[in-house]
Amino acid sequence: MTRLTKRLALVLAIVALLAAACTGSDDSDAFKIGLVTDTGKVDDKSFNQSAWEGAQEAAAALGAEADYIETEEAKDYENNINLFVEDGVNVIITVGFGLGDATIAAAKENPDIFFIGVDQFQAEALPNLAGLIFPEDQSGFLAGALAGMLTETNIVGAVLGTDLVPPVVAFKEGWEHGARYTNSAVETISTYHPGGLDVAFGDPDWGAATARQALDQGADIIFGAGGATGNGALIEIASQDGAYCVGVDTDQWNTVPEAQPCLVTSAMKLITPGVADLVAQAESGEFAGGNYLGEVGLAPFHDFDSIVTDDMRATLDDVLAGLEAGEIDTGWPPG
């Protein structure tokens, strides 16, 4: 046993030496993009994936190299950003508001590197850090306005991730206000996942059960917003004839095909083009720090195109104009 241990130690030492000798530089002149996920995965069918697609889109357009690191633990954000810093990348994209502080600190330390923080509001502007933020309330409002017009029972539901995450609350407030805007008789049933951050976005069973409950209470159009939890709700609603569902973040027609039988639209925040645009700005030298307001909107209606009447479309256009002009109160931010 002792001999084995000694040999093992020797092998490890040699390996470490070799590796230290080999970690030279591969300094090509190519523009390099690094992306650090939050504790979700890069193929999460949600915002990490959208951001990564934006990075890849930009890399293809600019002839740049793109790489990512998936964060395992929230405590590793700083270290993972530094891995890209040491690698000498030009742009670092950090995904999720949880990385906000680590991103600001890294941006201050590395003024030569551009940083893009998805969902990170910037209270004070740094020249090399852009926060890509979205008016989720407007996105939710548009979807709610459509729901208010589509519902026949005058009851609309929402199955949501936790209220510990402000964008989720913004989606919900917008959704409810939007529904009431187009249908003053509407009643709303909105339910947040009761668990902590660790489970709230990963509980499709709860999402399905809660969606079923809302259906039983008479809701005929339900908004699922909360990662896998929301997706569970969408898939449950798809099994109910005559009920509609609304997805979130991306066009979930593509990301959750099981929900297609009920999916009228999705309340989108267009992360992919936002990220791609900011990377292109960094490459061309037009990068401006501070907050960059990304676009929101409704996904195509796909199979449900025929049930959305011209009148409804006209109303949605009016709502969109009103939102953009700031004339409509979405209920968010509160007060």
Binding site: F97, G98, G100, F121, Q122, A123, D163, L164, P166, P194, G195, G196, L197, D198
Partner: peptide, 26 residues
């Protein structure tokens, strides 16, 4: 474990939340 998780999440999101600047995190 569940009780502790919810209790501490609530503490961090409500009475003990950092209200400085633009913080929105629990």
């Amino acid at each position: 474990n569940f009780v502790a998780g919810n209790l501490t999440d609530w503490l961090a999101a409500n009475p003990w939340q950092d209200r400085s600047g633009s913080n929105i995190i629990a």
